[in-house]
């Protein structure tokens, strides 16, 4: 049953690391898009690229179904809107409960602002700026039903690559 005031946004951002060449265009576009939310400090990107064993891994909020960050949010400012996990930064107090619970390290405490910031999906854009900026197709939009399928497909294709690192939660 749909409860979100904006209704279903119908899209998620999926990441295909095998296509990422590490150009960083997504990072720049993210910084620009979120800069108005930073009052006391330079804007920080909410997507990062990790370099591990010569492979690039773009990292961004995964929009978990039963999101641990939402369960843990003491103010209720981190919440589900439509199908996206988004944030009302007016109410965030930077308590970091959500950071302690996000299995992906997708939330960043911006000390100066006392805010815990993450990718909120840029729902006001038809295409999120990072997705628009990505030339290789490593970042894509898919619908939510599709996202489940896409994620599983990606998971299957990357099992060989994932080798050792079995640690961690399911998100």
């Amino acid at each position: 049953m749909e409860m979100g005031p904006m209704g279903s946004q119908g899209r998620d951002i999926v990441v295909d690391p095998s296509r990422c060449d590490g150009c960083g265009d997504c990072i720049e576009s993210c910084r620009e898009a979120v800069s108005s939310q930073h009052k006391k400090t330079d804007a920080l990107s909410r997507i990062w690229i990790h370099d591990i064993n010569d492979k690039r891994y773009p990292m961004v909020c995964h929009n978990c179904e039963q999101a641990p960050c939402v369960s843990a949010c003491m103010t209720g400012c981190r919440h589900r809107m439509g199908e996206f996990v988004t944030t009302d930064y007016e109410r965030c107090v930077g308590c970091s409960m959500c950071i302690m619970c996000c299995p992906f390290g997708a939330i960043q405490l911006v000390q100066e602002e006392r805010l815990a910031m993450k990718c909120d999906g840029c729902l006001s854009y038809e295409t999120a700026p990072c997705v628009k900026a990505c030339k290789t197709g490593a970042l894509r939009h898919v619908g939510f039903v599709e996202a489940s399928f896409e994620n599983r497909k990606l998971r299957a294709s990357s099992l060989a690559l994932a080798r050792l690192y079995k640690a961690g939660g399911d998100g």
């Binding site: 591990i52 891994y57 179904e65 994932a162 690192y165 640690a167």
Partner: peptide, 12 residues
């Protein structure tokens, strides 16, 4: 987490 995100992405 980065590698896990690929291998263990939480399908809803």
């Amino acid at each position: 987490a980065a590698e896990k995100k690929v291998a263990w992405s939480p399908a809803p």
